[in-house]
Design a protein around this nucleic acid. Structure first.
Lengths: 333, 333
DNA sequence: TCTATTGGTTGGAGCGCTCTAATGCTGTAG
DNA sequence: CTACAGCATTAGAGCGCTCCAACCAATAGA
């Protein structure tokens, strides 16, 4: 249970500690003879460098911290994949922590991440207040994903929710729909742009927007639909704030004896793996998640290495994925 | 971008560095006067201790490393919640890394985690070879979740797949089913026990087991069902290896014009959030995921602090969750 | 022959912290 | 008035590493 140190390797290889350090860092100014001797000794002892001691001594870090607000949401998994890809490429490691969508726990996760003094921090859809973010940004480069910010010290990566909503509306209108309701995400992070995009697109088509208050869950989507049915104000098409909401909406419609898409078309948002299930097969708006991660990592590394200081704002264009929950009103044409 | 050190705080508070250290660790042998002075100075400077320097100096760590084999699977999120809960309670932090189900990437993640010299490691359903695990176990306490091992140096936490499969079979038999097929998980980690449990339960009921080779995915479940239909060997009930597989099976059944559960009953395994969606509403086997995490963290902390050395094997009992995809053959009674 | 130059190698300081042993300082007893 | 606790406080070494300046051949140039 005790790991060998650089000293042990040096002793065994018959060289100085500094030389071992050079070898471990892949320095070119080491003779081949010594290099192989050192590597052999390291191998035999099962030595691997102590990342903390290293970063303490070098006053630099090759670690990027990633705070995932909700590990339960597969959305973030793909963003992490993107971050990991770029980070690894550039010789950085990542450490993840999670906040479980609770500000208190997230704050702790942030503290914990900061205590490792990483080179930079990516926050995925954080729920902590902006002040906590700006405080972190005083200490190291910070990139926000799926959350906007006006702080000039942080970079942001978001999808253009207005465009996404417009794509959905355009699709439905082109199918012949006139009455299209939006099940709104309430205070959800990205609900605002999506709602604005929906309203603008409807108006652009000369149609009357119908915004129904809802939330990012299965149950909320179902509830909203039941409300619409009770009101007698059910439209021919629904644009949900996200995929979960859309799936809830579909089940409520089916419970009421309505067929999707024959009677009502439904569009989700996010293109989660759920939407892709053949059993669901939801028409939805896709966000380039891995690209989010790649851009976030790149932005961070630019700040870390190229000392960029002006903030960067990435606004990615989402795309429409047509599956089987949308059709012309009155049944497939 | 430069964080204050203990020295800075000491200077500002007019005390020695050692005193600041004592205050930061909450030592009782510091006068109230000094303590408040130090805390005030720390607050003003925005000081927080450097975790790495601390662990380097103390030769101990209050960090638990967690390797999540697949961030896309919400199963692990709940296990992490359980780990986090216990760890936090005991004053430990966790850092997560992911292997993306690729042995190479997982190995890297492991290396990265080890380089932080955490107090212990939890591996969630790792795919790396056993040798890599035993090597890690030489350096620190290791707990495996959702993967068994014969290594006496590692603890394991698993669900009892045999019991789970038996629960499912018993349920179906009690509904009146006689012909029940198992869509097998192939080489998947937990497929073996589930298969054995299925076969044993069928035999216990005097029924003939029908194991169909399949995989842990939506598409594989659908494929298996199409095969059974083509063969003319479709039974009245299906026990899938996991929820994804079950959902794929359901969609293939519906595509073929069969109704679930009226014509065929389907049982999943894992009780993922997918199964709980009203649109899916899958009868399935639930594993106490958070409990997995709690037990894993506890086992680790026992090794870390109480120096336990004999391995612990937790085998948790799963439970049946009845939803709407199972009924008596020939329609709901 | 002597001085530069080069490439490989090394000692030692120091990163921010903890920990041990030693210090100073009361107050009480002898 | 000294002795001795008992307590709060501190100096200093050291954790495993990096980095700088110094060092030491060996070769090249004058």
């Amino acid at each position: 249970m005790v790991r060998p140190t650089m000293e042990d390797v040096a002793l065994r290889a018959g060289v100085s500690r500094a030389l071992v350090s050079l070898v471990m860092r892949g320095s070119p100014k080491v003779s081949d003879m010594r290099r192989t001797a050192v590597l052999k000794a390291a191998e035999e002892l099962g030595y691997s460098p102590h990342a903390m001691a290293r970063s303490l001594a070098s006053r630099t870090s090759t670690v990027l911290g990633v705070m995932v607000s909700d590990l339960h949401n597969a959305f973030f998994a793909e963003v992490v994949d993107g971050i990991d890809e770029v980070a690894r490429e550039q010789g950085f490691d990542i450490i993840i922590n999670t906040g479980g969508r609770s500000p208190a726990r997230e704050r702790r996760a942030l503290e914990s991440l900061l205590s490792f003094r990483p080179a930079g921090l990516v926050l995925l859809s954080p729920v902590v207040p902006a002040t906590a973010i700006s405080k972190a940004a005083e200490q190291l480069p910070v990139v926000l994903v799926a959350r906007s910010s006006r702080l000039s010290t942080v970079d942001t990566v978001n999808d253009d929710g207005e465009v996404g909503a417009r794509l959905a509306v355009d699709h439905l209108v082109s199918l012949g729909h006139q009455r299209i309701a939006h099940l709104d995400g309430g205070e959800g992070t990205q609900a605002g742009p999506r709602r604005r995009g929906y309203v603008a697109a409807m108006e652009a088509h000369g149609l009357v927007p119908q915004v129904v208050s809802s939330e990012y869950t299965d149950a909320a989507g179902a509830r909203a639909i039941r409300g619409l049915i009770a009101d007698g104000s059910l439209p021919t098409a629904i644009l949900s704030c996200n995929d979960f909401n859309a799936v809830g909406a579909i089940s409520a419609l089916e419970d009421a004896g309505l067929r999707v898409p024959a009677d009502v078309s439904v569009v989700g948002y996010d293109n989660t793996s759920l939407a892709a299930l053949r059993h669901v097969s939801l028409t939805t708006i896709d966000q380039p998640r891995a690209e989010f991660g790649r851009l976030a990592a790149s932005a961070l590394l630019q700040r870390v290495r190229d000392d960029r200081t002006e903030p960067v704002r990435h606004l990615l264009t989402p795309s429409l994925v047509v599956r089987t929950t949308t059709a012309s009103p009155g049944g497939p044409r």
